[in-house]
Structure formats: C-alpha cells, structure tokens
Design a protein around this nucleic acid. Structure first.
Length: 193
DNA sequence: TAAAGGATTTTCT
DNA sequence: GAAAATCCTTTAC
C-alpha cells in the first residue's frame, strides 16, 4: 500500500520536489468519495525572487501558507472562478511551492466526470484547475497537511529520467525582470495530450 | 490546430 | 483600477 510522502520529502529544493512528485498519487476524499490521480505535470515556484510566484508580493494573508512549514497544501483561487493546488516546499520562512498541473485518473473517475460534466476522458484532469474541480479540491483545504486525509499525496511510481521533460519557462507579461519557472512533466502525459 | 475573447472576483497597486 | 500560476467556446485557416 502506498504511504504518504514524509515531511522531509518537501523540505528540499523546489525544483527537485517538482521532479520527484511525478508519479506520486494525489488523493482527495470529498463528500465521502475518494478520488486518486497520478501526478504527471508539475511546476516549480521558487520564492520571493521568482516574479511569477505569489510570494513575489511578499508576506500577505494570501501567501501566509507559503511561508509556513513544507508539506502543506496551498490552495488558491484564480481568475474569479478556479482553484489550484500546490505542495509547499522548503523550510518555513522560505516561500515556495510546486503547482500540480495535471494528473491521470486512478480512482473515482465517475465522480470526476460528474463534477466536470460530460467530457472527453483526456479533458478530465489535464489542467491545474480541471483536476481540482474533478477531485473536489477547494479553498477549504488550504493550509492542511498533505500527509493526512482528506487531501494527501502518496508515494507512487518512480518515473525514469528518460520519461521526464523539463521546460524552463520564462516570462510574465508585466515583469521587467524575467521570472524563472520550471515545468516538469512525464512523457505519458505528453503522449496523449 | 491555433488564436482570440469572455467569464468572474480576489488581490495588490 | 488592473492583472491574474485558467478554462471554454468560437472563429479562422
């Protein structure tokens, strides 16, 4: 049986955590229904100096969780309608996190279809807000430990380096300095996107 | 397949 | 007041 990833897993360099989260299992128990998905795409937000990271705005009510201990969920609301979920990384005081960008349904696909509406199977969870809607993840989970129910990340498959793509993504429109973000995804996701 | 525009509200300037 | 760690639909090629 898979076990929750230990606290030490998250207390490392954010890009490493993003890489190693591939293949792990995201689990959410909402309204008594358990959904599980295999993580296939992640994105690293490295800290205050990363202008694309919410922590670039400094310590505010919104970013408080980012400044807290690693291994907690940072769930934020964006574009007036979407939720997205992150795993907080590095020690308390260093605000950084890994955005879960896509999963492959492993369990609870029926509930996912119900929440998302009738869609092509591939469109169920292939985006950061799509997977939250599918699994029932909302702001009520913000700040919770990822090692305990209802929202957890469990050890999963190890993904060979050969099956991992790493993209150094540059740019947000308004910034003078370019922020750096690291997108990491498995070829399994790429192949059927 | 790609590009463009709208939805909708929180957040910080 | 502007932009946002997105998604969906429509329109064009």
């Amino acid at each position: 049986m898979p076990r929750p990833l230990p606290a030490g897993f998250y207390a490392r360099d954010t890009e490493l955590v993003a890489r190693d989260l591939l293949g792990a299992t995201l689990e959410c128990v909402a309204r008594g229904v358990r959904c599980r998905g295999r993580i296939v795409e992640t994105e690293a937000y490295t800290g205050e100096e990363d202008l694309a990271c919410h922590a670039a705005a400094g310590r505010t009510a919104r970013t408080e969780v980012l400044y807290g201990p690693p291994g907690r969920a940072y769930v934020y609301f964006v574009y007036g309608m979407h939720w997205c979920v992150n795993a907080v990384t590095r020690r308390a005081g260093l605000p950084s996190a890994v955005l879960i960008r896509a999963v492959e349904p492993l369990e609870g696909a029926a509930a996912m279809r119900r929440r998302r509406g009738v869609r092509r199977e591939r469109d169920l969870t292939n985006g950061p807000a799509k997977l939250c809607e599918a699994m029932g993840i909302t702001g009520v989970y913000n700040g919770l430990s990822l090692q305990t129910s209802p929202l957890r990340i469990l050890s999963g498959d190890s993904v060979p380096d050969a099956d991992v793509m790493v993209t150094r993504r540059i740019g947000i429109s308004r910034a003078v300095e370019k922020p750096l973000r690291w997108v990491v995804r498995s070829s399994l996701y790429v192949s059927h996107k």
